[in-house]
């Protein structure tokens, strides 16, 4: 391990603080961070934040059915008197869990495929990347729909379908980075001293991919949520009574325009979470570029 005041560590610390300076200098990145922290916080503490935690289930307050937004129900209530604010918070919970699970599985698969194909070259490269191309050649939503078509529409299968169409993007990204990095002197040096392929892939090349991976993962939390809500909007996602932002929009649309809040608030909730993670992701990208 290097000493804390070694030149390398000092350069790293300088790089990090420069990255944070670049990130915090952009008001849009900070706005994104505020949105993300607020949504994640509300989702985690949802049962304590809302006065109606039991409205998550199939029953609500029958004395206040389809009530317009008011002091008691900030975002109004649905057809069976469930507080919409509560259901949106729990919808966020589900969306965030889905995004985390999908990325936790899809990213390692994509990264390994990209590293191996980019470094090995030849037939390995050709076969792995053609498989990736096939997945990228079907509109993502259609592929996820098709997979859902052969499975039962449950939370787990929804995550499986989205994971299946998500890894190729990481394979493509890491493949391009690896191809460029494999030509660098440090990889050649490791090869010369006889380092194993695994060592070169995971200890030499992978660390240089982290900025790209982290940036894309941040953006993708938003986009996985977008994709999951699209599936459930079509009725191919989580089934009731589990609160889900996409199916809330679909159900609410039946009561337009009189009960407009049933559609508008879940719709804005989706927009906000995707926007938040997008702003943070964009800020991260520029910060990493500033770090150099």
């Amino acid at each position: 391990m290097s000493e804390p005041d070694s030149p390398v560590m000092a350069a790293r610390t300088r790089g990090r603080s420069r990255a944070w300076t670049a990130f915090s200098a952009d008001p849009l990145s900070l706005l994104g961070l505020v949105i993300v922290v607020a949504i994640v916080g509300l989702a985690i503490f949802a049962p304590f934040v809302t006065p109606y935690p039991d409205h998550v289930g199939p029953t609500g307050d029958f004395t206040a059915m389809t009530a317009a937004p008011s002091g008691a129900f900030w975002f109004g209530t649905d057809m069976i008197g469930r507080d919409l604010f509560t259901r949106i918070l729990f919808g966020y919970r589900l969306s965030l869990i889905m995004a985390i699970v999908v990325l936790a599985i899809a990213v390692p698969i994509g990264v390994i495929v990209g590293l191996v194909a980019g470094y090995k070259g030849g037939w390995t490269d050709y076969i792995l990347m053609r498989i990736t191309d096939v997945f990228l050649a079907v509109p993502p939503l259609v592929l996820a729909m098709a997979i859902m078509g052969f499975l039962e529409p449950t939370l787990l299968n929804g995550m499986l379908a989205i994971t299946a169409m998500w890894w190729p993007w990481y394979a493509r990204l890491i493949y391009n980075v690896t191809r460029a990095e494999a030509q660098e002197g440090y990889v050649l040096a490791a090869e010369t001293v006889g380092a194993s392929t695994a060592h070169i892939l995971f200890r030499e090349i992978l660390p240089n991919c982290w900025p790209s991976i982290l940036t894309k993962m941040t953006l993708d939390v938003g986009f996985v949520i977008l994709m999951a809500s699209s599936l459930s909007f079509l009725g191919l996602g989580v089934q009731p009574p589990t609160p889900d932002l996409g199916s809330m929009v679909a159900d609410g649309a039946k009561y337009m325009p009189d009960a407009w809040w049933l559609t508008v608030f879940p719709a804005i909730a989706i927009l906000l979470v995707v926007l938040g993670f997008n702003l943070v992701g964009d800020g991260l990208r520029e910060a990493f570029e500033a770090e150099g």
Partner: peptide
């Protein structure tokens, strides 16, 4: 462009429909 990229197509759909269609 930011709102365009971050908003699912169905959210644009219901909002445009509500404002320009119903209202």
């Amino acid at each position: 462009s930011l709102l365009g990229v971050c908003t699912p197509a169905f959210v644009w759909g219901v909002i445009l429909q509500l404002v320009l269609g119903y209202f």
